[in-house]
Design a binder for these strands. Structure first.
Length: 136
RNA sequence: GGAGGUUGCCAGGCGGCCGCUUUGGGUAUUUAUUUACCCGCAGAGGAAAGUCCGGACACCACAGAGCAGGGAGGUCGCUAACGGCGACCGGGGGCGACCCCAGGGAUAGGACCACAGAAAAGAGACCGCCUGCGCUUUUUGCCUUCGGGUUCUGAAGCGCGGGUAAGGGUGAAAUGGCGGGGUAAGAGCCCACCAGCCUGCCGGGUGACCGGCAGGGCUAGGCAACCCCCUCCCGAUGCAAAGCCGAAUAGGUUCCGUUUUAAGGGUUGCUCGCCCUUGUUCUUCUCCAGGGAAGGCGGCGAAACGGGUAGGCUGCUUGAGCGUACUGGCAACGGUACGCCUAGAUGAAUGGUCGCCGCUUCGCAACCGCGAAGUUACAGGAUCCGGCUUACGGCAGCCUCCAGCA
RNA sequence: GGCGGCGUACCCAAGUGGUUAAGGGAGCAGUCUGCAAAACUGCCAUUCAGCGGUUCGAAUCCGCUCGCCGCCU
């Protein structure tokens, strides 16, 4: 049996090529604290990449931000439904199979300041609001 | 109670659930220690930081010595080593507890010391003071034949010399201070005392140095975080070091097969073709004047080999290690015995959430207690150690000064 | 991770122990002009990234910190 909420290396973007491809060709969404890039893949699983620049915060701050974002991805992966990733409202709703994507979440400057998240529910509040309107 | 000084310690704890990394075992799976799951063990710091020093380790270079270059700098010790640490000496700061010092040499030599000032470093010089000579003026004398005269006396000025370093608005810094004698004027020129320097001797200390006695002559500015001298130390590069394995594509070498003129330019929308240039106008044999055969060159295809890229593995964590007891030493630190194993990640692991306890603040209360909020500062290993420096929250012990009460 | 370099006005910068820290551009004010441009004149650094030390004296020499940039792949 496969654990429901596991998060191993196969669920991550691991080399610079994958990152730059997603950022260059993917669709982009922005919120107050993050910029999210999404690109469809054919792997039957979502993959996550995190980009937190040294300008955002110091060492512990960056690591904590990544941990929060990773935790968000791990616990809410099933809620990131396939349809949310479809670029526009084309008539492709006949497909039944799950569509998956590579997702890069890049932290913006404000994430390191007081506006940034301190608890997990703050991240969920901001990013789930982003993915659900994508259903349309 | 307030203000300080110094030394040491902590970096919230426990549990449930969901996850991450290493590793041991098990089950399943696989060509493969490949992947998945289950159980267990372990999982950031005092600064992990800055990369400022010192080592270990790796590789390259290297006979020895010297030069160049870089660094250290009171003494004695500790240490693998150090620019670190300890004790002591000397100097400085503070009422004090205590703190700070790149703290060798300025008679080995060179450079520099702006402005101001007479002068800024071996030199005596400007003003001044004193004095000799000459001249001029003048005064008092003196002489007088009463018109005057001027060797001589005093004063002033000018010129040419001599003596002197007392004094001279300066300056960061000016050749010691005060008193007396002395002199034409002055001067350590002489004397007493004080301060400093040098030399010798005696005593104490491993030593830096300290104390005492005697003598000397006033010659003696600062600056070596300027060059320099003296003593001591240093080969270079750094885990992206270094070693091993090694895909695809292109290229290299060898070999086999096959094919047989090659390169560049022009013409054209493009291809073929044609034309031009360069090179081969390859060697041998044969028939014959153009071909054929073999070899060479070149092209194509296949195989092998080596270099080597992406990538992977090793290096990679047991170490100048930690704890306890005894012990040597004022201490830094060392010795002996016993016990322990304590991160190895790589788009980079230690998290999330809930509960309880602890702590802080606020409110109610003002004895117990109840409620709310927060759980904080600096900050995340990247080959590993020893230091230094910087950032920063809290607690405790000891000590100093001030104030108040008894 | 390791190894180097640089910080002077809003911008580019000279200055390598000694009066009040050159110069150019931009900006501001003025002269000129009907108005502009150009030209000319004037102003603009209480201190050289910050702190400490050496020195009579530091942008300059020394040490520490902060910030920025580059190289090794």
């Amino acid at each position: 049996m496969v654990k429901k909420h596991s998060f191993s290396k196969t669920d991550r973007l691991l080399n610079p090529k994958e990152f730059s491809r997603t950022i260059k060709n993917g669709k982009r969404f922005t919120t107050v604290n993050y910029t999210v890039y999404v690109l469809e893949n054919s792997l039957c699983r979502h993959r996550l990449g995190l980009a937190v620049s040294a300008r955002v915060a110091n060492g512990p701050g960056r690591v904590r931000l990544k941990r929060l974002l990773r935790e968000f991805f791990r616990l809410n992966r099933d809620k990131l439904s396939s349809a949310s990733i479809v670029p526009s409202g084309k008539d492709s709703d006949t497909q039944e199979e799950q569509r998956t994507a590579d997702i890069v979440i890049s932290a913006r400057r404000s994430a390191g300041t007081d506006k940034g998240p301190k608890r997990l529910f703050e991240v969920e509040k901001e990013l789930l609001g982003l993915f659900k309107p994508g259903l349309i």
